[in-house]
Design a protein around this nucleic acid. Structure first.
Lengths: 208, 208
DNA sequence: TCGCTAACCTAGTGAACACTAGGTTAGCAG
DNA sequence: CTGCTAACCTAGTGTTCACTAGGTTAGCGA
């Protein structure tokens, strides 16, 4: 046992502990499948304490989604991806991209499940999430593919179809990891990334 | 307006109409997000009628999942896939596979969403579904890949990694179609299939 | 036309839910 | 040690849920 659980926490710490428990429970049972009673029990507090930090259950849910959206907005990563996309080093660009994609799923499957619940339930913050994060992602990839096609290095394919096809190669492994086989990839991350990137780049290269 | 809605239906027809409405509602709002009141209203009946056909809401849900599982078990399709997998015509095998995969998603997105809800909620019938349908699928694909590697036509890659990578190429398009962009693929089914198959086969081919 | 039965309804039940009014206490400042 | 306040609690509220007891009617066979 680590430090004995302090029963009375300052507001910020209590709020954080609620968010953490909520991520865990919402990701396992979904929004509707989680009761405020369970939520309170998981934090070793009573229900009214929840409501001192979040006006409603839905506001707690939205706070989590919003926090995740901000956490995913990593200017450093985005910048290095954008830089790599601008070069002709497709191997490096798609390598970075694939690793970032797979990492996104593997890093915290709870959030992946949370976002899938949100997407299925048609939550508006899910739309926002996918519009900003995913749309920017595809813009980058289709741009790179388009330039490589123009330069004659890639075969002439529909860039969006190709981009989604590539994303799917990694997303599928990630989905299996976070939903169907919790915590288990069928190979090392590096192996999956290099296999996918190799197949994609050899497959899309023009027959010189 | 088609035929005027007969208010009083024989048992079999009423049961079918309930299942149909339930597939629609469960796929949109999930199991917990759908109330028996809504369900009854969607069928223009009262709640007790539901319970004359299905003992509980959960039994109705399971009846739908079970029906879908049986519907997906298509001996004809399975046989022709198995036959193609046994040959060395990878182009044909992966073409058939890709078309079947994408069709599975596009044919009725309601069921796709239903199964995703079930998977997220950890329903045991979802496990059963994926064990039977998906496991058999991967067995077929890894077998073919393994043989092609042994014959020197494919590069030596991990067959399961490659199989999942291929499945992901199409599953991702299907997922986007059924969840994020309802009813809209970014290209024709044939274009997506041929792009994915071309990239995969060129990408996995050994450098002769 | 009449009677029978399958199909359907009204009008509830207790339980579980999100949320709250109002009181209690831990623990720090002085 | 005392008093103050942020943190927490007990004990509910009204609402909505899945589900039901018991009665009504459509519509077909004879």
């Amino acid at each position: 046992m680590s430090a004995p659980v302090k029963t009375r926490l300052p507001a910020a710490a209590r709020r954080a502990s609620i968010v953490d428990a909520a991520v865990e429970l919402f990701s396992q049972r979904g929004f509707r499948g989680t009761t405020t009673r369970e939520l309170a029990a998981a934090c070793n507090i009573s229900e009214p304490v929840l409501y001192q930090h979040f006006e409603t259950k839905r506001i707690l849910y939205e706070a989590i989604l919003e926090a995740k959206r901000e956490q995913d907005h990593r200017p450093g990563m985005e910048e290095s991806l954008r830089a790599a996309a601008g070069t002709d080093d497709s191997q490096r660009f798609f390598g970075l991209l694939a690793a970032a994609l797979l990492d996104w799923y593997v890093q915290d499957p709870r959030y992946v499940r949370l976002l899938m619940f949100a997407a299925l339930e048609g939550h508006e913050l899910s739309d926002l999430f996918f519009q900003r994060t995913v749309a920017g992602f595809y813009e980058l990839v289709t741009g790179h593919i388009q330039r490589q096609i123009a330069a004659g290095r890639f075969r002439p394919v529909d860039p969006l179809v190709a981009a989604r096809t590539f994303a799917g190669m990694l997303a599928h492994h990630g989905t299996i990891y976070s939903i169907y086989c919790p915590g288990h990839l069928c190979a090392g991350k590096e192996d999956i990334v290099s296999t996918a990137v190799d197949i994609f780049l050899k497959g899309i290269a023009s027959n010189e």
